Amino acid sequence: MADPIDNAKRALRAELRERRQLLTEAARRDAESGITTQLNALVQATGARSVSCYLSTRTEPGTRAFVRAATERGIRVLLPITRVDGLLDWAVADPDGELVEGLLGMPEPAGDLLGPIAVGEVDLMIIPAAAVDRTGMRLGWGRGYFDKTIGSMQDGPPVYAVVYDTELVDEVPRDVHDQPVGGVVTPTRTVTLAPQRR
């Protein structure tokens, strides 16, 4: 029997994926510029000296300029590396380092692997999302990597999801394993949605 929550998630993801694919290159460039500005301000406001982030794909709000700028300013940036067991390893970002295609076809660093617990030592987590609702519930892309990571952390750092402005919505379908985030970063604003951890 079909699960209505899974069906609702699938339908919303398909709509969001299509909307992202229709964005022009100019809109993508503007979004990346806005995301970089917002993330730089968030790092400054939180005093973070170590963050986790990710390398955006072509259709995601761009994080690559932020990652490069942060490492150049001496901020330690950890990037996720997918594992077959559904967990994430981490590697320290190197602007000149080699990138490889990860398990899911996404760009990942080829540097030395740190284990899954390495992310517990960052001051701020910046993660991808398909959408986030106003209670902080995050809709991911269905593989559960970040839900598992956040769910396994006690007293973890503040977690902010990066989405386009239209992807901060009133409500997303949720299941028992889904983990909320404390805030959202869009190209035009940063919104704290729930009390931050740590």
Rank of each mutant, 00 (worst) to 15 (best):
P4Y: 06
I5Q: 05
R10I: 06
R10T: 10
R28F: 06
E32Y: 09
T36P: 00
T37S: 13
L39T: 03
N40L: 12
L42V: 06
V43W: 02
T46R: 15
R49P: 00
S50N: 02
S52E: 00
S56T: 05
T57W: 00
R64C: 00
F66D: 00
A70L: 03
T71I: 01
E72P: 01
R73I: 01
T82R: 05
R83N: 12
D89G: 01
A91M: 09
D94P: 04
D94K: 05
D96H: 10
E98Y: 07
E98N: 04
L99P: 07
L99H: 11
V100E: 11
E101Y: 08
E101P: 04
L104H: 15
G105E: 06
E108F: 08
L113F: 12
I117F: 10
V119Y: 03
G120T: 11
L124Q: 02
L124F: 07
A129G: 10
L139W: 05
G142T: 09
G142L: 04
D147R: 13
M153A: 11
M153Q: 15
Q154C: 08
Q154L: 14
G156M: 14
P157I: 15
Y160I: 03
V162I: 15
V163A: 07
V163Y: 10
D170F: 04
E171H: 13
P173R: 13
D175A: 15
D175C: 04
D178G: 08
G182P: 02
T186D: 10
T190G: 11
T192A: 14
L193W: 12
